[in-house]
């Protein structure tokens, strides 16, 4: 438990002085402003519905780039050797890093908080829906950060790790519309793996346990794979 906190604090310190993190943060804030503007002007609704699904796609591209550093860079610097020969458990290392990335995402979302405030100024948004939308986006972030950590644990080059992370996540986006496009039973099953389908409910103010389970399972799988990838390095 203490190890997790130690790693979490260290990662946030490193993020705080990392120019790349700020660059991606800026891109994310820019995109959220753009999607917000388009959503409002196209639908004429005082809601974050359009924003949410578009931000999930932005997360898909940005979060692997924010997490690509983690293991690739530790390995290049030789610090992974230090961490893995300290009493810290690999479990604490993975969870600490994941929580730090998630904390960064939460701060990123906090930066977009101005958007619902603008809604409130001109309209009357449903605050419950706003809250569930953010919850959904945070669950997506958890899964995507886990995927980014996994790709980072596989490759030594951080940029390659970031791109691999994006490639690993793309199918989860692309299958989302399979059901709508094809409509047969296979397409329906395939699209059950889609991220957007599971996010949709949150955008309408519904927290479905199936959706929560989906994101939790995705996160768990990627974190578990990360853990195994770290362990396997001992056996090379």
């Amino acid at each position: 438990m203490r190890g997790i906190l130690t790693i979490w604090k260290k990662e946030l310190r490193v993020y705080a002085v990392n120019p790349t993190a700020y660059a991606f943060l800026a891109v994310f804030l820019f995109l959220s402003g753009l999607f917000f503007f388009l959503g409002i002007t196209l639908t004429g609704e005082a809601s974050l519905r359009v924003l949410a699904s578009n931000l999930a796609i932005a997360e898909l591209f940005i979060l692997p780039m924010l997490t690509m550093r983690h293991f690739a860079e530790e390995r290049r610097q030789g610090t992974l050797e230090m961490l893995l020969t300290s009493p810290l458990s690999p479990f604490s290392l993975v969870i600490g890093k994941w929580l730090a990335s998630l904390t960064l995402c939460a701060l990123m979302f906090l930066g977009t908080a101005i958007l619902p405030l603008i809604l409130a100024h001109y309209g009357d948004p449903d605050w419950g829906v706003v809250a569930t939308t953010y919850l959904g986006l945070l669950l997506v972030a958890g899964a995507f950060c886990a995927a980014g950590l996994f790709s980072s644990s596989l490759l030594d080059d951080q940029l390659a790790a970031g791109l691999l992370g994006i490639v690993m996540l793309l199918p989860f986006w692309l299958v989302s519309r399979a059901e709508a496009l094809v409509g047969d039973e296979l397409a329906e099953r395939v699209s059950a793996f889609g991220v957007l389908n599971h996010l949709e409910g949150f955008g309408r103010g519904i927290v479905d346990s199936a959706d929560v389970t989906y994101f939790a399972a995705l996160t768990f799988c990627f974190l578990f794979l990360t853990f195994r990838a770290l362990e396997s390095r001992r056996w090379r």
Binding site: V14, N18, Q77, G78, T79, E81, M82
Partner: peptide, 14 residues
């Protein structure tokens, strides 16, 4: 054990 690997394991930003 205290271990110094071949390249000192440092975080340049700290």
């Amino acid at each position: 054990v205290g271990y110094l690997p071949e390249t000192p394991p440092l975080y340049p930003e700290l």
